[in-house]
């Protein structure tokens, strides 16, 4: 599932697009990537219109980058999700 997200890194915020997310981790692509072993935070917004809820809900995740890779002309980073919480 491809979603546009903003990732908080130790060096500021970056824009990225998710390539794959599971309970274990996230693969995302972006112009600039956070360093391997650095901590990241990001929030996935889930609109009320899609989730059928009264207000928007979100998933806030914290994790750490474990590797970089290049696929075609995309620069990608894989991160482990250490913790998450759902927020309404």
């Amino acid at each position: 599932m491809q979603l546009a997200i903003r990732i908080k890194t130790e060096d500021g915020e970056i824009e990225a697009v998710t390539e794959n997310i599971s309970a274990n981790g996230i693969l995302f692509s972006g112009e600039s990537l956070p360093a391997v072993d650095s901590r990241i935070e990001f929030t996935i917004d889930m609109p009320a219109s899609v989730m059928g809820s009264a207000s928007d809900v979100s998933i806030h995740c914290t994790g750490r980058v474990v590797r970089h890779q290049v696929k075609g002309d995309l620069k990608q980073a894989a991160a482990i999700i250490d913790e998450y919480f759902l927020k309404a």
């Binding site: 997310i21 309970a23 889930m46 989730m51 998933i59």
Partner: peptide, 23 residues
């Protein structure tokens, strides 16, 4: 075929299963 709440929420987002239900 999900393993936890995070995957469940993402599944709901992707397949929009709650949209129809809550309508």
């Amino acid at each position: 075929g999900v393993s936890d709440r995070l995957e469940l929420a993402l599944y709901c987002l992707h397949h929009q299963i709650l949209k129809k239900y809550n309508s």
